[in-house]
Design a protein around this nucleic acid. Sequence first.
RNA 1: CGGGGAUUGGCGCAGUUGGCUAGCGCGCCGCGUUUGGGACGCGGAGGUCGGAGGUUCGAGUCCUCUAUCCCCGACCA
Length: 415
Amino acid sequence: MRLSKNITKTIKTIPADEQATNAKLLIRAGYIHKEMAGAYSYLPLGLRVIENIKQIVREEMDALGASELLMTSLQAKETWEPTKRWDDSVVDIWFKSQLKNGTEIGLAWSHEEPLMLMAQQLVQSYRDLPISVYQFQTKFRNELRSKSGVMRGREFIMKDMYAFSRSQVELDQFYSEAQQAYLKVFDRIGIGDYTFVTFASGGAFTQFSHEFQTVTASGEDTIYLDRSRRLAVNEEVYNDEVLKQLSLKKGQLERVKAAEVGNIFNFGSVKGEQMNVYFTDEAGERQPIFLSSYGIGISRLMGVIAEHFNDEHGLVWPVPIAPAKVYLLAIGDKKTIKTADKLYNVLTGHGVAVIYDDRDIRPGEKFADADLMGIPWRVVVNAKSSTDGYYEIKARTETSLKNVQLKALLDIILT
RNA sequence: CGGGGAUUGGCGCAGUUGGCUAGCGCGCCGCGUUUGGGACGCGGAGGUCGGAGGUUCGAGUCCUCUAUCCCCGACCA
């Protein structure tokens, strides 16, 4: 990406209508644009981060054997009535509208019910099971109060996966595999060390659901964390009995703020019974389908990571999700620029995502923007580079510079 | 939904007790000098003060209503 072609410009002043660190940084660096409270657009850089997160999640979900689909955001009233969840007094975050003919519709805040209805049609036999699907979808939730930048929006991107099983045993098996896959995702994204499986309220179906909570001061949740066991309990279910049940010791627990980046639910056969989704087993008996669902807040993750990884100069993206691996800039005359152009092509040719600052501005601004945008590697081509073949490279997380030749440069960047 | 704060060029802000052509910084445009950590000089463009109504000779400034944004709380399948 050539910065001269990018619609985004970094800004020095902090947006007055944002308090949250993630929003301030993401807006200043040109990753997102605020449309209204709780609704943000993803600009080119922000979209790359979103896509990078999605790709990691996609790979891990695929590894579980799930297949990707994409459902509609428009939902029918009838779909939600069997479970009573169309009712505003039961689910109070609906955005509702209607068709020209007066038919009521809702904007998707979850896809559990529509997915179940789809399964009713597509899944008939035990031979069709187990099966799991997932999607990256925009969810709409009419929050009374959205806040904290992209961490709690009225519109956000979520990965939701649904698994259909033939029995509780089969469900539990998948559930624990998915849990491992989730840990792997957060590891790969760069927040594995700060993200913990957390026991939370399970709703009407089971005693607990499992959340994945990332420790951060800006989090909305309070959890009690046992670091040695890498387990936590959400404050909402925290009591002596629960501690005993999980054999957690009060003295070893830390009370910390955290942001929920994932949540997995075990619905058992309840949903299948409620919505009349059955399959025929080996014996020819009609059995309710077992459902479990698995969410990851994709856009919230971007916010949580921005909150966690930054310094006084700006963002500091973990390498796997950074919008580019390299921030390339030239300092010097036309000949230097030509050398930088060449290097840009070489790097791009190796599949490296590069932000090439080809703007006609002073070096200081480029350095400042490289830092603010939080790109992992900064490569400088200077007047000498074209003659001696050395390029300067610096990591965003360090202050020391290295001068290396192309081969060494590639070694550093490609590993 | 309860409480608190805010709304003035693209962004961040200042505008004393109501008073003349509404200012400043950043950004933007032009010319020149600069070029390894957000340069500098000169010259420009751009706002009718969130919206509606009112008080007044006169309203960015006072009153009423309203919209939006931020924060705290409540809420969060």
